[in-house]
Amino acid sequence: MMVQTESSTPLLLETRCLSKEFGGVHALDGVNFRLRRGELRSLIGPNGAGKSTFFKILSGQLQPSKGDVLFDGKAIVGLPPHRIARLGIGIKNQVPSLWDGLSVYEHFWLAAYRHTGKRGAMERADRLLQQLGLWQKASQSVGTLSHGERQWVEIGMVMAQEPLLLLLDEPAAGMTEEEVERTAALLRAINTEASLIVVEHDMQFIRMLEGLVTVFYQGRVLMEDTIDAVLADAKVREVYLGTADSHG
């Protein structure tokens, strides 16, 4: 298990007073968030808490109304998504987003090609097909895959980019119990080389990730602690578990 709280480890990501308003709705309301290099952080919170909005700002898909984002010491607000991706942030959005007509192999190859060139992309794509157990489906177009497989293809693409930080928005949604376990193991393996922030509703899954947990509520950070401390907290029970038993 990684020890995340050592304050000597340098910061990888910091947001200051990050806010996002959608015509009167405060999706994010002054979020101060810090992530150390090497962390595997879980982000939880009831529906509409602002988790996906937070990810979209970090990846440049949305511009914040206020506040700063520092990644690896650089201010990244205002950069277009492809520049942020090049700095080392890879994202899997909540709604799966793939190139439906293209094959699984091409997804990995193209995701790697930009920074590895042709040879490196082939090696990386082959490795990912093995690692994700998608070898049999390599030449199938991703439009024909099951939901769980599509999730893996998207995670694999993010891995192919070799980012410093992976943002995964509900990576285990719609997966069977066995697939969920495999995904948790995969994310821990990724964590030996990169940092991650994972949004999930499934508490079993978050427990398997063994990292610190940040709780969002109404666009703010409600608390940040271990999963056990979070689940034992009265406020969290009230805002989160009380309203979302089915996820627990």
């Binding site: 990846s59 898909q61 277009p80 998504p81 492809h82 991706a85 090049r86 890879g90 994202i91 959005n93 987003s97 793939l98 190139w99 439906d100 007509g101 293209l102 193209l110 995701a111 930009r114 920074h115 693409m157 980019q161």
Partner: peptide, 13 residues
């Protein structure tokens, strides 16, 4: 053509 957003998120201009 398939999904421009994914292309940008993969680092391509």
């Amino acid at each position: 053509r398939e999904n421009e957003q994914r292309t940008e998120l993969s680092g391509y201009d």
